[in-house]
């Protein structure tokens, strides 16, 4: 794994969509007492391959660097070392081939639902008539027909999240990056959103990287679940989810329970580790 260099990318598998190679991210943080900058390793040696049309879910304790990683794939942040490739091309910045959906919806409150969905299309300079057609198609896809001229604040949390998804899909990116998109909605809405997302994914054939804190959500959605640990952020294990699709009612199955148990344990261990680390850190602080 460690001698995985740029050269190997040329013997690239057709099915590989995104390849992250030896990603490290170090933040320089100012300690509150001293002027000195100390280094904080948010991500350490991340190697990850996402296949074409794969649904990949990342879980991990808070602060393990999930969002940091996703931002890098989106091109919004740069790794301190290492590279991320998409279709063999190095990712250097954001582009319309990747769409992002964030936890806080991040809808543009001054734009109607339709205009929100059309934003990426405006950037793409698609003419108005075509724009309206496309946005209508995606508004219908996320079941928001009839809400086109409403403003974001007039929608429920679940509806807003669907708008955010439609907005990211409308400009037809190949990869959809979702950072805890369903965290702010109630359990029932969440389950229906998950089913809807699977339906959209099957229909649109996107590659999806999805971050969540919910183990159930991860298993229900994923082809593969990446479990991370914190301090420093590392990939602890990757678990293939070989549950049959469609997955309606799968939550009650024995296999689902087994996977849930496994991931839960992995996360528990991670937590225990970080807990210990934190405590020793505190001790060190006191000693100094």
């Amino acid at each position: 794994m460690t001698d995985f260099t740029g050269d190997t990318v040329s013997v690239h598998d057709e099915t590989e969509k995104i390849v992250a190679v030896n990603i490290n991210k170090i933040y320089k943080v100012r300690q509150k007492d001293s002027e000195k900058l100390t280094e904080f390793q948010a991500l350490k040696n991340i190697n990850l391959t996402v296949k074409k049309e794969e649904f990949l879910v990342i879980v991990g304790p808070s602060g393990c660097g999930k969002s940091t990683f996703l931002d890098m794939v989106a091109g919004l942040a740069h790794p301190t070392s290492g590279e991320i490739y998409m279709d063999e091309k190095l990712i250097t910045g954001p582009a319309l081939d990747r769409g992002i959906v964030l936890q806080g919806y991040a809808l543009f409150p001054w734009r109607s639902i339709r205009k929100n969905v059309e934003f990426g299309l405006e950037i793409k300079k698609i003419p108005r008539k075509e724009r309206t057609e496309i946005s209508q198609r995606f508004i219908d896809l996320v079941n928001l027909h009839g809400f086109e001229d409403r403003y974001p604040h007039e929608l429920s949390g679940g509806m807003k999240q669907r708008v955010a998804i439609a907005r990211a899909l409308a400009y037809d990116p190949e990869v959809l990056l979702m950072d805890e998109p369903f965290a702010a909605v109630d359990a029932q809405t969440r389950e229906s959103l998950q089913e809807e997302l699977l339906r959209i994914w099957e229909k649109t054939k996107k590659t999806i990287i999805f971050i969540t804190h919910s183990i159930d959500e991860a298993i229900f959605l994923a082809d593969r679940v990446v479990v991370m640990s914190a301090d420093p952020g590392e990939i602890k294990e990757t678990i293939n989810i070989e549950l049959p699709r469609p997955r309606d009612g799968i939550r009650a199955s024995a296999e689902f329970g087994r996977l849930r148990q496994k991931i839960w344990q992995l996360l528990q261990n991670g937590h225990a580790d970080t807990e210990e680390l934190r405590q020793s850190d505190n001790l060190n602080d006191r000693a100094v």
Partner: peptide, 15 residues
């Protein structure tokens, strides 16, 4: 401005 709004706009390579 909510950072997520700027982040979303930036992700679309907004000029």
């Amino acid at each position: 401005i909510e950072p997520a709004i700027i982040k979303t706009a930036r992700s679309m390579k907004t000029p």
